[in-house]
Every structure is written in structure tokens, then in C-alpha cells.
Amino acid sequence: MKDTTATLTGSEATFPAAEYDRRLDRLRARIREGGAEALLLTGPENIYWATGRQTAGYFAFQALVVPATGAPVLLVRQLEETSARAGTWLDDIRTWQDGQDPAAVLGKLIASLKLGRIAMERTGWFVSPALSDAMIAALGDVTLMDGSGWAEAARMVKSPAELAAMRLAGSYADAGMAAALEACRAGASENDIAAAMTSAAIAAGSEAMAMEPLVSSGPRSGIPHATWRRRTLEDGDGVFLELAASHDRYHAALMRAAWIGQPPEAARHMMDTALRGLDAALGAIRPGAPCAAPHEAAQAVIDDAGHTAAFRKRAGYSMGVAFAPDWGEGGILSLFTGVETPLQPGMVFHLPITLRDYGRYTVGVSETVIVTETGAEPLSRLPRALSIC
């Protein structure tokens, strides 16, 4: 059988090899700083960020071993080898077969690399406690360290190539949201709106989204994270809309609100507060300011308007690489009270400012923004005001 490895390698890669070399160098520096011989990654976001490895088959166990010096080694299910070679520039890709214990295969791989002190991330979505225990047992006498957050720290500030991908994702989100707002009318169903939203985002260029869009109307719009369930819109309904579109797994999210007919005065006041809260948060974004600053600026506006109880959450969270079940990087950075990490140019955040009359309606507005040398660059060009349909 003809060896296609050479022609496959990197043929589907998101970025040039040099982009990943720079990322791996950052990881190696952190590994040496932490006193480990290697970092073991199992989260799909971290593996993708470090190598370009992506697939719809990320539900199957995969692991990346990044030594403090030398080339990384990727372990994937045998069925996934072709996509791993096409999506990455890696030379050393090992496989486990269906019917094998992947933890045992990993243990043998680590033994063959003669690594004695390994940092292991313990915060991934896709390693169950049982599998984690099996991995630790399979690693035998290896000294284990907690490497949680090492890769995430390196992901906080995006490269120019990453920012370009996120700007494209933002344009796809704009297309989806514009179509959703156009579809909002009495007699339309939530499914009609969701179909218009996703169709337009995908037609504009979006790939798979890491979480389903949120489309809800009437009293259902007052339920956090509710989404479409065939309800028909009626005069007097509020409509809540949120999505994140994707370019090469980099996501940009967007939220808007609409009303069928004229909204009550209380909803108008809440929407005005949300708009002013978002403006305040955006105005507080500048390099060197703590991540808490945008949240506290928005919270002050909301508290002064008397809507404290309608907004009991963080003002934002970081965005970037995402795989289901979440479109954000909320586990990396939050815009919230007490988060003192300084903002830096190249960080990206989604700021959803939502005010709820729970069980009745939600109004709100959001932007995904890039932190720049002078402030914040919003990725959406859509109007922010409540849309009257």
C-alpha cells in the first residue's frame, strides 16, 4: 500500500508549521519552569491549540505528550490517524485500536519515552474520573505533577493569525444574527428563527459551532439558556437571541434582543440599562486594567438603575478555541469581581450584558471584543438597540 504520510502531513492544517512551533516553544518554557520533563494534554482545545489537531471524533481518547525538549508525540484512536496527520505537522503520531485500553497504551508510550516527571492537566472535559485513575495507574512509577492551566495560560493572548480567524467568526455571527432578527415576526416559530440564524451563519462561512444558538420567546425568554422549542411568536413577545459562529474552531459570540410589537416600559428601561452597562464595560477595557474592571463598570450602571437582582453573573469571559459543550473559554478568564489578571492586547472576550425578569422576559446585548493597545475592538457591526418587529 502506498505511503501517503508525506502528502497528508499538514494538508488540512489551520496554520503554518511555524505558528505551532512558536506555541510549542511557549509550552516547553513553561514545562522547564515548572520542573517537569513533559506536559501531558488530553483536552481537545489544548491539543488543537498546540498542534492543529481537530476532528468530530474528539469524543475518543487522545493525548499529546510535549517534552521539555524535543518533538511532541500524539496518541489517537487508529481510525483518527488520517485526520491527525492531515491536520497537524507532527511526525510522531501513535495509535490505539478499538478493543485496546487507551490508558494502557498511553502508559507504554510514556515508558518508551523514558520520562520520569510529567505534568498532567486535570481539568479537561473529556477524561472521566475512572479514565483518569486508569491513566495514573498505567503511568506506574512516573512522578506526576499538576499541569492544569499551563496550556491555558499560553492561550490567553491570541496571535495575529488567531485574531484574524476570530474576526472572520465575528462576521459570520453578524450574518446569522441579522437573519434571525429579520425572521422575528408574529406567526413565525422559534424554529424558523433558529433555522434562519444557523443557515445564514453557515452560508457566510461558519463551521461547526461548539454550542447550539439560544433562541427563545415570550415567557420562555426569561429562562436562562433556553433555546428553540417550536413556540409560535405572538404580539407582545420578547425574543432573546444569542449565537457563536466559528472559523477554524475560533469562536465569536453575539447577543441581541427583539420585541414583537411595543415592549412594556419596564423592558425598555432594562434594555437601556443593558446598553449603558455594555458601554461602561467596553470603556473600562484597556491594557493593564484588571479583568474585574469591566465587570465592575457594568455592575455600577446596573446597580444605579435598580436592576441588581436582574443581573447576578459575570460581565464576560474569554473567547478563542472551542469544542462542544461550550463556545467560550470561561474556564480560562472571567470578567468578574476579584479577577486581578491584567488585560493585555490580543486577549478576546465576550461581554453578554443580560437583564432578566425571570420567567417573563430577558433583554440584553453583547459584543465579542479584542483588547487592543488603546481599548477594545468589537467584532460586530450590527446595531445594539432592541429591535422592534
Rank of each mutant, 00 (worst) to 15 (best):
V369L: 08
T9W: 00
P294L: 05
D357P: 01
D141P: 10
A68I: 08
G320V: 00
L39A: 11
L64E: 07
L8N: 14
R117G: 09
H295G: 05
P383L: 08
L8V: 02
M270P: 04
T362N: 14
G375L: 03
H295K: 02
D303T: 13
W259A: 12
F15P: 10
R53W: 09
T337Q: 14
A257S: 15
V348M: 09
S148D: 01
A253P: 05
W327H: 11
G222E: 07
D304E: 15
D237E: 06
S171C: 04
A322G: 02
V65D: 05
I302S: 02
D357I: 15
M271K: 12
V215F: 06
D357A: 12
G283H: 03
M255H: 03
N191Y: 10
M271D: 15
V157W: 06
T341K: 09
G187R: 02
E377K: 05
P67K: 05
R22H: 13
G116I: 02
E377D: 12
P72A: 07
R381P: 00
M347L: 04
E377V: 03
R230E: 13
D21Q: 15
M271N: 14
A17T: 03
A324E: 08
P102I: 05
I202N: 05
A17F: 04
K2N: 10
L343G: 10
Q299E: 13
T362V: 08
R122T: 15
